[in-house]
Amino acid sequence: MTQDPRQDLLPVTRIPRTGLPAHALVVGDPARAAAVAALLDGAEEVSHHREYRVFSGSWKGVPVTVASHGVGGPGAILMFQELADAGIHTFLRFGTAGAIRPGIGDGDLVIAEAAVRDDGVTQQLLPPEYPAVAAPEAVLALQRAAREVGARHHRGIVWTRAAFQPGPLPLFSYDGAGLAAIEMELSALLVTASLRGLVAGGVLVVDGANADELVDEDATGGYNPHREVVAAGVERGALVSLEALRLLSEEYAADRPEGGGA
């Protein structure tokens, strides 16, 4: 009997259960996934279902998966979980963010050390005291790659917040907490990776202010992500992310026991 090929696909994202490269770069926008995949050697589209678009290829000889996860933690965590189910063990999120800390400019990169879990989904999985932290090796690989590319970058804690637009409820102020930036999905990735014993981190391109309460609008020119300075930052960020994955693959290979699995 011929096996139904649909049985080999995971249910939500429709990605294959096996065969994907184990180092993944995850992005929000399906079009950005295609743009990053265009930088790879031998890139092929693996699947495209809903907002979840997946490519495979290689970067400087390292097999890489590139996947889009859409906007917001609840949908993104489904992709993260199913990528982990498919055998991905190293994740880097490459996205955009609004700057919070003074001195972080448009087009700069923010390398996340940890995230505030205001993502709208992990609160239903774990108590709020459980941290969302990046793997130290991911932070260091991203920092090294940013230096090699010559990309202006900063390290710090980011705020993952489910709501993009402010509403009638008062917005909690993190003034004085030293947060670097605000985005929408990273803490869901970091918690997923911690629960499963995987490596994860994130680098974000600053595309302006996300809310007037969080950023000096005069300094950023207001929120407009469709500017040349942001596009240039995205190009640098893609190179930094892929190079960091290469560095992490070398470290993973060095740490594997001789004769160990892939």
Results as ranks from 00 to 15, higher is better:
17 R>K: 15
18 T>I: 07
20 L>G: 02
22 A>G: 03
22 A>N: 01
23 H>V: 01
23 H>S: 04
23 H>Q: 03
24 A>R: 00
24 A>D: 01
24 A>V: 01
25 L>K: 02
26 V>H: 01
26 V>E: 01
26 V>A: 03
27 V>A: 10
28 G>F: 01
29 D>I: 13
29 D>T: 13
30 P>N: 07
34 A>L: 04
34 A>K: 12
35 A>M: 11
35 A>C: 07
36 V>M: 05
38 A>F: 05
43 A>Y: 02
43 A>G: 04
43 A>Q: 05
45 E>D: 10
48 H>T: 07
48 H>F: 14
50 R>W: 10
52 Y>K: 08
53 R>E: 13
54 V>Y: 05
54 V>N: 03
54 V>H: 06
55 F>C: 10
56 S>G: 03
57 G>H: 00
59 W>S: 06
59 W>E: 04
59 W>H: 13
60 K>H: 08
61 G>C: 10
62 V>G: 02
63 P>K: 09
64 V>T: 07
66 V>G: 12
67 A>E: 07
67 A>P: 04
68 S>V: 14
68 S>C: 14
68 S>M: 14
69 H>F: 13
70 G>C: 14
71 V>T: 14
71 V>C: 05
71 V>W: 03
72 G>T: 08
72 G>F: 00
74 P>M: 13
76 A>F: 05
76 A>I: 12
77 I>P: 00
77 I>C: 10
77 I>S: 11
78 L>S: 12
79 M>C: 15
82 E>L: 13
82 E>C: 12
85 D>R: 15
87 G>D: 01
87 G>I: 04
88 I>C: 02
88 I>L: 00
89 H>W: 00
89 H>F: 00
89 H>K: 08
90 T>L: 01
91 F>N: 00
91 F>E: 00
92 L>G: 04
92 L>S: 06
92 L>V: 15
93 R>S: 08
95 G>A: 13
96 T>F: 08
96 T>Y: 03
97 A>Y: 07
97 A>F: 04
98 G>P: 01
98 G>V: 09
100 I>V: 15
100 I>E: 02
103 G>V: 08
103 G>L: 07
104 I>E: 02
104 I>G: 09
104 I>C: 13
105 G>T: 09
106 D>E: 09
110 V>D: 05
110 V>K: 07
111 I>K: 04
111 I>N: 07
112 A>Q: 05
112 A>I: 12
113 E>K: 11
114 A>V: 06
114 A>I: 06
115 A>Q: 04
118 D>K: 03
118 D>Y: 04
120 G>F: 06
120 G>S: 10
121 V>T: 15
122 T>E: 08
122 T>P: 02
124 Q>P: 00
125 L>C: 01
127 P>A: 15
130 Y>T: 14
130 Y>N: 07
130 Y>M: 12
131 P>Q: 09
131 P>C: 11
132 A>I: 15
132 A>H: 05
133 V>Q: 14
133 V>A: 15
135 A>F: 07
137 E>R: 15
138 A>V: 12
140 L>V: 08
140 L>Q: 11
141 A>F: 03
141 A>V: 11
143 Q>H: 11
143 Q>R: 10
145 A>H: 02
147 R>M: 10
149 V>I: 12
149 V>Q: 13
150 G>F: 03
150 G>H: 06
150 G>M: 08
151 A>V: 10
152 R>E: 10
152 R>S: 09
153 H>E: 01
155 R>K: 11
